[in-house]
Design a protein around this nucleic acid. Structure first.
Length: 702
DNA sequence: AGCACGCCGACT
DNA sequence: GTCGGCGTGCTC
């Protein structure tokens, strides 16, 4: 009650009725900061004369809407409005900084349309929260007036002073020449960029460590772009990769040209980097997925590292993928694009086959010379002949490779991610639960799936403990940890390093050590690993996912790229039974794997040969929703089918959720996804409960 | 989330 | 005949 009283007094009788509208362009078009889908469109307001100068497109504003004061972005000034509604005055301009450029607004709108989501949800990711103190550092500056066009040495110096001295360490080591020389058409890609053109390419990177590592390749492409007087955006999956790219850029572009842009740095540094780009003090943005929207003017190149990494997909609606955001941005801005990875995603393969991007691949001979020797071994082994191997619970060939490798340097052991398939042990005596057939560790793929062997995949539904006779299993948290422990026992005098989950190591010394890591958490050894053991292949391959093979090959190639080439004794041992995927690793053939995979998807009418949307909600809700869409003949509806409650959206887990899949050709997408968006807005306006959640092109949905 | 407008029941 | 219940729908 007191609150409402206070509120009543704090908003004095508005003098707006009396104030004159601005003489020029008196209408302001505003995007509201509201999560409601049916409000996700511009609303017009009257600009009072005293706000006219500050009310420029892109600024944050406050407006009265319905009952309350809402934040929003002013996106346009207009001479007249086409609404019949009685216009209300713009409340206030929150900050003079035009944080939402027309380019990024357009991008957010395209992304929202593509994902059948709201512009608001995209903008929440694209424009970082305001930090007023940081804005003061840029007082009296004009956006975009930074370095290139005008001689603004004075202001630049001032900014330098305020930001403190550059903490860039002096250049060390020598830039490794042109890292693109190893790829057919690679040098031409760089020279086109440097000449101000906008080539598009998919690069199959060969090396993950040392002077020829992929961060140097990305840095070279950025350098070429900067030489042409243009800016660049680089998106990487995580902090570890971000640090590596920033490091590689130090040798390639002038100090302070590039900024880190990631939410994990916290609001203040993030907003400062954002403003440095906006004001033109920096022209290269490197960051995690939200950096795809970085306000880099005069964009020459967008670049994504390892686009198949699931970290590139936004976790919240509309679940947009950094690769797709960058594709839309490159198209709209006329920028070049570089999709680089040790593997090749089926999406990247599609870009190549459609002629949109060119492949940059090394010649076979060079591939063989640059990569490790890969051996495969069946996922089972003979316990009796192999007591030591049994103790480490790894096949003999792998054990042997580790033993040899440890004489020459660190040895990487890749194990399945914890939680992805948690190992099981006896609830009562805590002994690890083992397969009766091969003694492999038992694991559960999901909460309700029966235990199965992680090596031979044999299900063990009626397990009982051979030690104490108990029938009760417990999920143990130790994936990498346990393996590290076991390996430590098998190699008693060797240092064991573990890198997974919350204790990720980015680097290990060149000294002999066993480095146990989960996929994506592999530390880099400066001179490469002497050997790598890729365990748990069968578990990864038997995952219930359309992408199991693609994803497994990606993890294998990424780990193998950290191993020295065969000529320097580098060895990779993979334990799995799948012949096709193992074959692509043995031949180091990501292109062939992607070709094969995309051909298969095309045959089956599955993504990414087609696009698709995943609709979840109540059964009735879905039926009504789909019937309202007016789908063309070419769209294929599958379901609805009940879904497991593994990913609960709301608190009420009681209601059974259903899922409908809708597959449609690329050519119809620009009709179908906006229709879905409109249907969701209509549904939300009527407030009939029963929401339908839309997820377009989810990488892990099938 | 609030506020208007709208169509039914109780009261002046 | 008018005041007011709160039940749908819109909010520049």
């Amino acid at each position: 009650m007191q609150l409402s009283l206070l509120h009543g007094f704090s908003t004095p009788a508005t003098p707006v009725g009396k104030s004159q509208p601005a003489p020029e362009l008196p209408i302001a078009r505003v995007l509201l900061d509201s999560p409601l889908p049916h409000l996700d469109r511009p609303f017009d307001y009257l600009v009072p004369a005293d706000l006219s100068d500050a009310a420029v497109p892109g600024v944050r504003v406050k407006v009265r809407f319905g009952g309350q004061e809402l934040a929003g972005f002013l996106i346009e000034r207009l001479a007249s409005t086409d609404t019949t509604a009685r216009l209300v005055n713009l409340g206030k301009v929150v900050s003079a900084v035009p944080v939402l450029s027309p380019e990024i607004l357009g991008l957010a709108q395209s992304v929202a349309a593509r994902c059948a989501g709201s512009v608001h949800d995209v903008l929440r990711v694209a424009v970082p929260p305001r930090v007023a103190r940081v804005e003061k550092e840029f007082a009296d500056r004009v956006p975009g007036a930074g370095t290139q066009d005008e001689p603004t040495a004075g202001t630049a110096e001032k900014a330098e002073e305020k930001n403190g001295p550059s903490d860039a360490p002096p250049k060390q080591g020598q830039p490794a020449g042109n890292p693109f020389r190893r790829y057919a058409h690679g040098p031409r890609f760089l020279s086109h960029l440097a000449a101000g053109h906008s080539p598009r390419a998919v690069l199959s990177s060969l090396r993950g460590y040392g002077p020829d590592a992929w961060p140097r390749e990305i840095a070279a492409a950025v350098e070429a772009t900067v030489l042409s007087g243009r800016g660049a955006v680089v998106v990487v999956p995580d902090q570890k990769d971000l640090a590596r790219v920033m490091d590689a850029l130090q040798d390639r572009v002038p100090a302070d040209t590039a900024v880190r842009l990631t939410g994990e740095d916290g609001p203040t540094p993030r907003y400062r980097s954002f403003l440095r780009l906006l004001y033109g003090d920096a022209s290269v943005a490197v960051g995690t997925r939200s950096a795809a929207y970085a306000p880099v003017a005069n964009l020459g190149l967008v670049c994504i590292w390892d686009d198949a990494d699931d970290l590139h997909a936004e976790q919240r609606a509309p679940y947009q993928h950094a690769r797709d955001v960058l594709l839309l941005r490159a198209e709209a801005a006329g920028a070049g694009m570089l999709v680089a990875s040790h593997t090749r995603s089926t999406e990247a393969q599609r870009l190549i086959e459609s002629g949109w991007a060119a492949p940059l691949d090394a010649e076979r001979a060079l591939v063989r010379a640059s990569t490790a020797r890969v051996m495969s071994t069946a996922d089972t082994f003979n316990l009796e002949r192999d007591p030591l191997a049994a103790r480490a619970r790894i096949p003999h060939a792998a054990w042997k490779a580790a033993q040899d490798g440890l004489k020459r340097g660190p040895v990487l052991v890749q194990v399945a991610r914890t939680g992805f398939s948690p190992a099981l042990s006896c609830q009562d005596c805590r002994e690890p639960a083992r397969c009766r057939q091969c003694q492999g560790p038992l694991a559960q793929a999901g909460r309700n799936s029966p235990p199965a062997c992680r090596w031979c995949a044999r299900p063990e539904p009626r397990w009982h403990c051979p030690h104490c006779g108990s029938f009760r299993l417990r999920a143990s948290t130790a994936g990498a940890g346990r393996t590290a422990e076991e390996l430590g026992r098998a190699f008693p005098s060797v240092t064991v390093v573990s890198s997974a989950g919350d204790h990720i190591r980015s680097e290990v010394p060149d000294a002999p050590a066993l480095v146990v890591a989960t996929p994506g958490a592999e530390p880099v050894a400066p001179s490469g690993y002497a050997a790598a053991l890729l365990l748990d292949g069968t578990a990864m391959l038997s995952r219930q996912s359309l992408r199991a093979q693609e994803e497994t090959l990606r993890r294998w190639l990424t780990a193998s790229a950290l191993v020295r080439p065969a000529s320097e004794g580098g060895v990779v041992v993979v334990t799995a039974d799948d012949t096709a995927t193992v074959g692509h690793l043995l031949r180091w053939d990501p292109a062939g794997a992607a070709e094969r995979e995309l051909a298969l998807r095309r045959e089956l009418g599955l993504p990414p040969a087609v696009r698709y949307a995943e609709l979840t909600g109540s059964r009735e809700g879905l039926e009504g929703f789909v019937s309202r869409l007016g789908l063309p003949e070419s769209a294929r509806i599958v379901g609805p089918a009940p879904v497991e409650e593994s990913t609960v959206h709301g608190a009420e887990a009681a209601a059974q959720r259903w899922r409908t899949l809708c597959f449609f050709p690329y050519s119809e997408a620009n009709v179908i996804t906006p229709a879905m968006r409109a249907a969701k807005a209509a549904l939300s306006a009527r407030r009939t409960g029963d929401p339908v959640y839309i997820r377009v092109d989810a990488p892990d949905g099938l």
